[in-house]
């Protein structure tokens, strides 16, 4: 029962109190129920997907890599998609999972950075803040049962500090000196850990690239949703840079000798 007599017998869409009789905060919500939104389905599965993202800490900052493929199921649908994205000068994000969700996230972060810039006080969001923000957004969306279907690595370098952390569609977060999403967490992560753990402050940029390329090669050999065309990003004191797309030399002659599946007769 509404005990406020001024609410009684009001038209349903009275957008505002024409007579200014009581404060806005106490006015009733007489908007029509949004029957359409109740029938809208939320994402239940990713559609156009990216595969692994890799990242490691090294002497001068963070190195991150992801290939240029966006798959449609098992179809290699888009072969020139960029899955690394710089947010400001000190942060890089790389995503696996649904590419439309990722592009939405890119737009959202770009808008956020512009909003921050308009404060005109010289304070920019660093990698830690951006990671926290992303985590809150992804966690809030999973809580609404309407997830943004991605696994995202956030790498950065600010005020002499390296930053590397993970966040996914559930809002799960963690940080480590080597990270990999998707298939890479099974195949590349052990290689990265072996090469990097305990040597974060020693590894040079050339060495880091070597480690990343080795892992990307193994992933290309083993991950059927990968592509031999990828980009490498570095985030250092010099800023966040993304390389041109590149590919690696691979050898497939050994495949001839493999027996047991495929079209061979013996």
């Amino acid at each position: 029962m509404d005990h406020f007599p001024t609410n009684w017998g009001r038209p349903r869409n009275d957008a505002y109190d024409a007579y200014g009789t009581y404060p806005i905060a106490q006015r009733p919500q007489n908007n029509p129920k949004d029957a359409f939104s109740a029938g809208v389905q939320h994402t239940q599965q990713p559609i156009v997907t990216g595969t692994s993202v890799l990242a490691i800490k090294y002497k001068d900052g963070i190195m991150m890599a992801a290939d240029n493929l966006a798959s449609y199921g098992s179809l290699a649908r888009f072969k020139d998609i960029q899955r690394l994205h710089a947010v400001g000068n000190n942060t890089m994000i790389g995503a696996g999972g649904d590419m439309s969700d990722f592009q939405y996230i890119q737009n959202m972060l770009d808008e956020l950075m512009i909003d921050e810039f308009t404060a005109q006080d010289g304070l920019a969001l660093g990698p830690a803040e951006i990671h926290e923000y992303l985590s809150q957004v992804l966690y809030a969306r999973r809580t609404k049962m309407n997830p943004l279907w991605n696994s995202i690595l956030v790498g950065g370098f600010k005020d002499g500090q390296r930053f590397l952390a993970y966040v996914d569609l559930l809002g799960t977060t963690y940080s480590a000196s080597t990270l990999a999403t998707g298939y890479g967490s099974y195949i590349a992560q052990p290689l990265l850990r072996k090469a990097v753990e305990g040597r974060e402050d020693v590894i040079t940029e050339a060495e880091a690239l070597e480690i990343i390329e080795t892992s990307m090669r193994v992933l290309y050999y083993r991950d059927a949703r990968s592509l031999n065309k990828f980009q490498v990003a570095t985030i250092t004191a010099e800023g966040a840079k993304i390389s041109e797309s590149k590919s690696l030399d691979t050898t497939w002659s050994f495949a001839e000798g493999i027996r047991g599946y495929g079209a061979q007769t013996q």
Partner: peptide
């Protein structure tokens, strides 16, 4: 603190 895990810059608070 909740959204950015950062203490709010004083100038932003005053603005």
């Amino acid at each position: 603190k909740m959204v950015f895990n950062r203490p709010i810059p004083v100038n932003r608070l005053v603005s």
